[in-house]
């Protein structure tokens, strides 16, 4: 009997080995399949890419800001004026760096954007446009050109979809893609992304109830500016 016993355990060992082998073989099979399908995919991919019928639409600011006047005329109408209404006749203070020294329409404005002067970006010669570092004028609509002078890393990431929110289609052959521009998310005067409030939490059974459950939608802080 002891002889049979050892034989028996040898059989046992073989069986477990075969289980392990089966598992290995299976994982080998799995490893192979994606590669082959990837190879096929590479071929057909060119055609997918060639018929990119739809554009990537980057949202643009509506134009130069307009200043709302505080009062109304006798008919109760409000009015707004362009920056150039005042600035075309005023001497530009090229040294100014802070909102504290500004008055009239700039009261209460916050500024926290590095150690730069107002006229680093605003155009002293053309108040309804912006100014690039080389002195050339750039329209408010093309503010991203201005931002990209310093934030080239972000601009590069943006160009490759790795910075900034988007909507629409990943596949441009099937539909367009809409992207935010810099100042949709970053206030140019206080560009740090604002804080938010967590609004939605999964309620797991038996987990402590989240304290944030009844708080309001979180974008309040974000949408304000």
């Amino acid at each position: 009997m002891p002889r049979i016993a050892s034989l028996f355990f040898a059989v046992l060992l073989c069986l477990f080995a075969s289980v392990a082998l089966a598992a290995l073989w299976q994982s080998g099979m799995r490893a192979n399949t994606p590669t082959s399908s990837a190879a096929e995919a590479q071929v057909s991919q060119a055609s997918v890419h060639s018929n990119e019928a739809h554009p990537v639409i980057i949202r643009k600011p509506s134009g130069p800001p307009r200043i709302e006047l505080a009062g109304t005329d006798p008919q109760g109408r409000t009015a707004s004026v362009a920056c150039s209404t005042c600035h075309s006749i005023r001497q530009a203070n090229l040294e100014n760096k802070t909102a504290a020294t500004l008055d009239e329409f700039h009261q209460g404005m916050a500024f926290n954007h590095g150690n730069i002067t107002c006229y680093a970006c605003h155009n002293p010669n053309e108040s309804d446009a912006l100014r690039l570092a080389d002195g050339s004028s750039v329209a408010y609509e093309n503010v991203m050109t201005l931002c990209s002078q310093c934030h080239s890393k972000q601009a590069e990431s943006f160009a490759h979809g790795a910075h900034g929110g988007m909507n629409g289609h990943w596949d441009l052959s099937r539909g367009p893609q809409m992207k935010n521009n810099c100042i949709d998310c970053h206030d140019p005067h206080v560009p740090k992304y604002p804080k938010m409030i967590v609004g939605f939490k999964p309620k797991d059974r038996f987990n402590e109830p989240s304290t944030a459950e009844h708080q309001q939608e979180g974008t309040a802080a974000h949408d304000k500016h």
Binding site: A162, M166, N167, H169, W170, S173, R174, G175, C185
Partner: peptide
């Protein structure tokens, strides 16, 4: 062809989605 819902909802633009077999895709660049 559309983007996933979680990506569209992301206000910070932290999420990127795409086809890795497309050499020009965002995801490949990342």
């Amino acid at each position: 062809g559309k983007l996933p819902a979680c990506l569209e909802a992301c206000p910070t633009g932290a999420r990127v989605f795409g086809n890795i077999l497309d050499k020009n895709s965002n995801i490949r660049w990342i």
